[in-house]
Design a protein around this nucleic acid. Structure first.
Lengths: 215, 215
DNA sequence: CCCGTAATTATACATCCGTATGATTAGGAG
DNA sequence: CTCCTAATCATACGGATGTATAATTACGGG
């Protein structure tokens, strides 16, 4: 009855472009509906390709997941770094910019939290993901510790190393917690409420006054 | 060749006991290996039953997952409340007990984080899970806000309502963040380091001195 | 002691998953 | 224009998953 459909036409693309498309599709699906929804068929479909492409451009599904997670973490770090770089030379302003960027979109939003939680479940299964997770976490905390140290020096109250570590862990925790709450219950907070709380809280923890830096 | 295995013997149990066993097995599997590992066969096996029991005692797998999540959240809240109740009558001691309990085992540990992240992925799919999530989150924050208010009153510096809300959100964020870090990278911190940081941070945020309360 | 009911086991079923493989075709090299 | 390569498509395969159903069996009420 139904004569066979003609094979769909296609155009060739550079492998890197295909890889990027597959990674983007993976991130969309994990963010929208969790890791279980990111099947090879759904990913290929979202990318406008057929499922064979995943095994052609990656060694397997797990390699694609690893690449997607690394790409997401790199994008987040880059978004924060861009805000810091655009905040001018003052250490206090740069610290405030990092804080604000960490708890507002595009870093803090439901999709980001879903992505993070989704990949966390895969941590057990993949060494690559665990390594990426740990590296990006510590990298963020080190960056925060450096800005905290600079800002405290600017204020004439320098930090010693162990003190700086404890302060960075605590400030990182507040920011992580606010990031989490902003992503989990976005409608439970007012516009800018989370960012204001982040600046106030870090101010209280560090003894600096960062509230002036919020526009 | 192989004659059919005799049907395994069994003993009857009360439905509630079977439900509890299935819930416990579900939580173990999700904590150990993520939601993907919690299949009906694996759950029944862990509980020492056959897979038919899941559909017999629950309307389906999703209902079991919902029940397991609710049970886990209730157990966490109960563990914290037990510590608060055992801390004596002083509001400051009770606040310190809640803080310490929130960032130390059994509340803060890798299994708990894995459980939380695993269920978060299912939030999108299940209204029941989302409702449980939101209710337990707000319940925890309200409890914290009440203890903060009492402790500040005890110290002679009472809080007004909006101020109390902001303080509760910020303190909740630090605790969430430290809980998260303790669960994600347990070996990155020293014994008691997280609990000490939690008390120090909330002290800085509230202006109270809670460090004396740590034994 | 027997019997009926519901708790329990065992098995079948349709569907989906990740992977493997062979056929096609786009697009540049010569 | 022709040919060759590899990018792409289509399909098949074994295994796992959630659900449905029928066959057993434990155990309390008569």
């Amino acid at each position: 009855m139904t004569r066979p459909e003609p094979r769909r036409s296609f155009i060739r693309a550079e492998p890197e472009a295909r890889r990027a498309a597959l990674i983007a599709a993976t991130l969309e699906l994990v963010a929208e509906a969790g890791p279980a929804a990111a099947t090879v068929r759904a990913i290929a479909d979202r990318a406008g390709l057929t499922q064979g492409m995943i095994r052609h451009h990656f060694s397997g599904k797990e390699a694609l997941i690893d690449a997607a997670y690394a790409a997401h973490m790199a994008a987040q770090a880059e978004a924060i770094e861009a805000e810091v770089a655009g905040a001018g030379p003052s250490p206090r302003a740069r610290l405030a910019a990092m804080i604000r960027a960490s708890v507002t979109p595009p870093v803090a939003e439901p999709a980001g939290l879903a992505l993070w939680a989704g990949f966390l479940n895969m941590t057990r299964g993949s060494r690559a993901i665990r390594a990426t997770h740990e590296a990006s976490y510590l990298s963020y905390r080190d960056r925060l510790q450096a800005l905290l140290t600079e800002a405290r020096e600017e204020a004439g109250r320098p930090l010693r190393a162990p003190e700086a570590r404890a302060l960075a862990i605590a400030c990182n925790a507040v920011l992580d917690g606010l990031w989490l709450e902003a992503g989990a219950l976005p409608e439970a907070f007012g516009e800018g409420e989370i960012a204001g709380l982040a600046l106030t809280s870090v101010s209280a923890l560090t003894g600096l006054d960062l509230s002036l830096e919020s526009q």
